[in-house]
């Protein structure tokens, strides 16, 4: 438990030391039963740690499925990824720069509409996403019926209904994740269309930014954020694309405060 300066990549290299076959991010609004899903999947094999430089606690845990060890990282519950708060920024940075093999978004079936905002924002960053519609038991009680095949068709990502409290649907979630990560199931997620003048501006920026990103980050998403004037992202991108390893990362992030190291 020695304290030291750590950066994103250090966290990741630490994660990978666990002989894990895949790192999966778990995102979702607050109060959606995200932690119940996390606990249901990982059991008691979990640790918590701080995201470097921030006082946001991340939990991670492992589970084994079809001879693969999966590491789950439970991100802070957020309503959006627009980096309005430390929580949102950490969630966004992990999905974007943490290179998770896939991201599970947990949503509350009783208020799907509000929760879908986060889902659309996640699939704007990464195509490898899975939607976990939790609390279906509660929705059923409230007389809410969701057309899951249609939702899957509209979003273009796998949709798994669950009631994590009763372990309903967790096996299907593991299987779905396995297919996306290890059987390279091709996903064609929905892309949010914006107003014409925004699309025009984005297209221009996207063309210019493309070479800098070297295919590491979704250029359309970066273009949107730059158009939005999101300055929190700029340093992160510069660090990410120039970084060749944990050491160079550390140099570029001397503003990071000493925090407890991971684990």
């Amino acid at each position: 438990m020695n304290c030291q300066h750590v950066g994103t990549l250090k966290v990741l290299s630490k994660l990978n030391q666990d002989k894990s076959d895949a790192v999966i991010a778990l995102a979702g609004n607050p109060n959606t039963g995200k932690s119940t899903v996390f606990n249901g999947l990982t059991g008691l094999k979990q640790h918590t740690g701080n995201w470097p430089g921030k006082t946001v606690v991340l939990a991670k845990g492992n589970y084994r499925y079809r001879n693969k060890i999966i590491t789950l990282v439970d991100l802070p519950g957020t309503y959006s990824l627009l980096a309005n708060s430390a929580d949102e920024q950490v969630a966004r940075d992990f999905i974007c720069f943490g290179n998770p093999e896939a991201t599970i978004v947990v949503v509350d079936a009783t208020c799907l509409e509000r929760n879908l905002n986060l889902v659309l924002q996640v699939i704007e960053i990464t195509p490898r996403a899975i939607l976990c519609v939790n609390l279906i038991d509660e929705a059923k009680r409230k007389g809410i019926v969701i057309d899951f095949p249609k939702l899957e068709a509209l979003l273009g990502i796998p949709v798994v209904p669950t009631a994590a409290r009763d372990k309903v649907g967790l096996a299907a979630l593991k299987e779905s994740l396995h297919q996306v990560v290890f059987e390279h199931k091709q996903l064609q997620p929905l892309s949010i269309r914006y107003q014409e003048r925004i699309e025009v501006a984005v297209a221009t920026i996207q063309r210019e930014i493309e070479p800098f990103l070297r295919g590491k980050i979704n250029s359309r998403w970066v273009a949107l954020r730059l158009l939005d004037g999101d300055t929190t992202l700029i340093t992160e991108i510069l660090n990410y694309i120039s970084g060749t390893g944990p050491d160079s990362w550390e140099q570029g992030s001397n503003e990071l405060k000493a925090v407890k190291c991971y684990e």
Partner: peptide, 30 residues
């Protein structure tokens, strides 16, 4: 470019909400 387009954040959020509303309308029945 963002300054020229106007309040980008508002517009992005508005378009986002419009689309989630549309999806929810097609998928959720009470």
């Amino acid at each position: 470019a963002g300054a020229e387009v106007g309040p980008v954040r508002d517009q992005l959020v508005l378009d986002l909400y419009r689309q989630t509303q549309e999806i929810a309308r097609q998928v959720v029945k009470r």
